[in-house]
Simulated scan of single mutants.
Amino acid sequence: MPLTVPRDGIWLRLALTLEGTIRRSSYARQILCSQQFNDARTRWTLADLTFLRFALERLYSTQGHIRMSALSADCDLSLRQFERRFKQRIGVSPKMFARILRFEALLNSLIQEPALSFADAASRLGYHDQAHVIHEFKT
């Protein structure tokens, strides 16, 4: 019997992230609105929910600025197993999801702190320079 995913806390943040991403990207819209993603979500088990909650909480708390090897170790999984499980459940790789979170954090930082320079905001989130931000944006 499929579990119902709670609609608060980390799950609400995930829903808002996915909604924002879908609005901005036709590629994300194709992935996240696909029947495959929706079918997979109905089959999440308690173990899936526990794994996803922990991984998502770490991703959000670090604003996507975390090494996937560290995150997979925190989840007690090998890197390959972690990446495979995350992608099967969410529909995008954990690294791509972290990039989305980091870019959103940069946008929010620039909007909420207008006095903050672009370079300072970007370096806080682990971007090395403007070219790095542009490359991630294009990706």
Rank of each mutant, 00 (worst) to 15 (best):
residue 82 F to G: 12
residue 60 Y to I: 01
residue 26 S to A: 13
residue 64 G to N: 07
residue 134 I to F: 01
residue 28 A to W: 14
residue 24 R to M: 03
residue 30 Q to A: 10
residue 10 I to A: 00
residue 124 R to Q: 14
residue 9 G to H: 02
residue 108 N to Q: 11
residue 65 H to T: 02
residue 121 A to M: 02
residue 15 A to E: 12
residue 73 A to G: 11
residue 133 V to E: 06
residue 79 L to R: 13
residue 79 L to C: 03
residue 137 F to V: 02
residue 12 L to W: 11
residue 91 G to Q: 04
residue 134 I to E: 02
residue 69 S to F: 01
residue 75 C to E: 02
residue 130 Q to E: 12
residue 125 L to S: 05
residue 64 G to M: 01
residue 53 R to K: 07
residue 105 A to W: 05
residue 102 R to C: 03
residue 98 A to E: 03
residue 84 R to K: 13
residue 111 I to C: 08
residue 89 R to H: 10
residue 106 L to G: 06
residue 93 S to E: 13
residue 10 I to S: 02
residue 85 R to I: 08
residue 3 L to S: 12
residue 38 N to L: 07
residue 49 L to W: 08
residue 42 T to S: 11
residue 7 R to Q: 10
residue 116 L to M: 12
residue 88 Q to D: 14
residue 64 G to D: 07
residue 9 G to E: 09
residue 130 Q to L: 05
residue 138 K to Q: 10
residue 3 L to N: 10
residue 77 L to P: 04
residue 44 W to Y: 14
residue 68 M to E: 05
residue 37 F to Y: 05
residue 54 F to L: 08
residue 17 T to A: 12
residue 73 A to H: 09
residue 96 M to E: 15
residue 50 T to P: 05
residue 83 E to A: 15
residue 98 A to Y: 07
residue 61 S to G: 04
residue 116 L to G: 04
residue 117 S to M: 06
residue 53 R to T: 04
residue 52 L to Q: 01
residue 34 S to C: 02
residue 107 L to E: 11
residue 29 R to V: 03
residue 112 Q to E: 14
residue 16 L to S: 10
residue 49 L to Q: 06
residue 49 L to G: 00
residue 52 L to T: 01
residue 63 Q to A: 07
residue 41 R to E: 09
residue 65 H to A: 03
residue 134 I to W: 00
residue 36 Q to D: 04
residue 36 Q to G: 01
residue 33 C to G: 13
residue 133 V to K: 02
residue 18 L to Q: 06
residue 39 D to F: 06
residue 26 S to G: 04
residue 53 R to G: 00
residue 64 G to W: 08
residue 19 E to Q: 08
residue 134 I to Q: 06
residue 76 D to C: 07
residue 96 M to S: 15
residue 16 L to P: 00
residue 72 S to E: 08
residue 118 F to I: 07
residue 28 A to M: 15
residue 101 L to E: 06
